[in-house]
Design a protein around this nucleic acid. Structure first.
Length: 480
RNA sequence: CGGGGUGUGGUCAAGUGGUAAGGUACAUGAUUUGGAUUCAUGGGACGGGGGUUCGAUUCCCUCCACCCCGACCA
């Protein structure tokens, strides 16, 4: 009997991940430009479900979807000083129109604040225009590093969902931050992805923000992937872009802003967290195909088997499930098992001559490979249950795994040893001083993720660096 | 951006200063079908540009792309 193995995934994660993208036909990264990849039909369908989930979550909280241009004027991109300072070295520039050099060059947006906010200035007139909550899903471009990795570190982020909100005061902006965090929690929970939420240290916050809160996903190789961020921008950008509103009293005030983003890294996390050595494993919600029915042909009863298969398929479809019967006659059933396992189809139904006799079907779960026989008449009620249970089990498994990879230590040596072997996320007492944070990063050669937001723990003891009284735990991990 | 490595059909991979094995995938036809059935037949490759040479896939330079380490970064 087949069981789920994670040997290759855990020991050679990079190689495994690339293999998955190609084998499961998610993304072809052989495009001739560094850091760019092509979403394949199957991968694009997964992407569509994921982006639709994001749309639903944002729409439900009163956000409106928009689409801004990719080109940004140089003047605008330079308006907020700290912002441009951080992005300067990562910009792609458009310098020519046809064969003529442009007098004013354009940048490809590395994120869309500087594309959107000049328009916000025009749109926002008075308190009635607030709050304004917009989002878009599109591409941003960053020319930043030699070490690109498909989906995980790219030069064209092709699935960048970014939301931008404007508010009348800081309190409302803070409330929005909480709503954003909840949206992202809902998102990752629906995907069955485990995560930590940390408040980034000041030296690592989004350029131009008051503070940043990040969702980090621990990958099987022990490195964290920053997969979602929520920023409180304060009035930094509204002052730079002159976004003002008229109050009830007739005064003109700068708006308070937030922004929060999530990218295709969410899909990378989805693949990495649930996948095994046989392929990817999709949460039923996002699977382009949720049930694959594989007939086991037989000389005499072959036609009858196919009839039962299509009957079951029709029944599943009437439940709103995405289902398909694999009728290809040039492949053996075994070959089909492998084919659909690679692509992560959550449920497999096998129907052969034996099952026909007993009026039953064999149900196999992709995550556990658990095989069970059910009466054909019961499928209609049992399959939705199995799918729900599978979703819950996958999420629980992800969280359970994460818990085993978070370590609380009180000294640098222990932290260093754990991080050296990429054990996971380390939590260590910290006084909150930047100098100690940098010392920590240098000592363990890893990145400070920040202080816990999800489970603020009471902390007694001393800063592992300076021995002063610790004010909080700080998380540190080797990051992507 | 610094250091190192690698580019041979879709993919994996031998080999050569005189145009190139094999596996797998693909196509066609048979045969099989409860975990990748077997056989036959077929098409398809030396990353781009420049140089050395009678001749370059092979040697040199360069560009592009990929991989590893570091820096930077979501």
């Amino acid at each position: 009997m087949v069981t789920a193995k994670h040997e290759k995934r855990d020991k050679h994660f990079g190689e495994w991940f690339r293999q998955m993208l190609m084998d499961a036909e998610i993304l072809d990264y052989r495009y001739p430009i560094k850091g760019c990849g092509v979403w394949l039909p199957y991968g694009f369908k997964i992407r569509k479900h994921v982006t639709q989930l994001l749309r639903n979550l944002h729409d439900a909280k009163g956000h409106d979807e928009v689409q801004f241009p990719i080109l940004v004027t140089e003047a605008n991109i330079r308006k907020e000083a700290t912002h441009i300072k951080d992005f300067e070295n990562e910009l792609f520039w458009v310098t020519h129109g046809g064969s003529k050099p442009l007098e004013l060059r354009y940048a490809l947006r590395p994120t869309s604040e500087t594309a959107m906010y000049p328009m916000f200035e025009l749109w926002i007139r008075n308190h009635g225009d607030l709050p304004m909550k917009l989002y878009q899903i599109g591409s941003v471009f960053r020319y930043e590093t030699k070490t690109t990795r498909p989906i995980i570190r790219v030069r064209e982020v092709s699935t960048f969902k970014e939301a931008h909100t404007c508010h009348a005061n800081l309190d409302n902006a803070e409330t929005q931050i909480q709503e954003a965090i909840q949206i992202y929690k809902d998102f990752f929970d629906a995907c069955g992805i485990s995560y930590t939420i940390s408040r980034r240290p000041d030296w690592d916050k989004f350029p131009g923000s008051l503070y940043s809160i990040a969702f980090d996903v621990l990958m099987p190789d022990g490195r964290t992937l920053q997969s979602g961020t929520v920023h409180n921008l304060g009035q930094n950008f509204s002052k730079a872009f002159n976004i003002k509103y008229e109050t009830l009293e007739g005064n003109h005030e700068f708006v308070w802003q937030t922004c929060y983003g999530i990218s295709e890294r969410g899909i990378a996390a989805l693949i990495a967290i649930h996948g095994d050595d046989n392929g990817i494993v999709l949460v039923p919600k996002h699977a382009p195909l949720q049930i694959i029915i594989i007939p086991i042909p037989h000389k005499e009863s072959g036609t009858a088997i196919l009839e039962v298969c299509s009957h079951i398929a029709a029944e599943m479809r009437s439940l709103g499930l995405r289902v398909k019967v694999d009728t290809r006659d040039d492949l053996t059933p075994g070959a089909k098992f492998f084919y659909w396992e690679t692509r992560g189809v959550p449920i497999r139904i096998e129907i052969g001559p034996k099952d026909l006799q007993k009026d039953q079907a064999i149900i196999v779960r992709r995550d556990t490979f658990k095989k069970e026989a059910y009466k054909t008449v019961d499928l209609k009620t049992r399959l939705p249950q199995i799918i729900d249970q599978m979703t819950i089990d996958m999420r629980n498994k992800a969280w359970k795994w994460l818990q085993t990879r978070i370590f609380q230590v009180d000294n640098l040596q222990e932290a260093n040893e754990l991080l050296k072997k990429r054990a996971g996320i380390i939590e260590i007492p910290w006084c909150g001083e930047e100098a100690c944070g940098h010392e920590l990063e240098e000592h363990v050669k890893a990145k400070v993720l920040g202080t816990p937001v999800d489970s603020p723990k009471k902390i007694e003891g001393q800063c592992a660096m300076c021995s002063k009284e610790a004010t909080s735990l700080v998380r540190v991990a080797v990051a992507y």
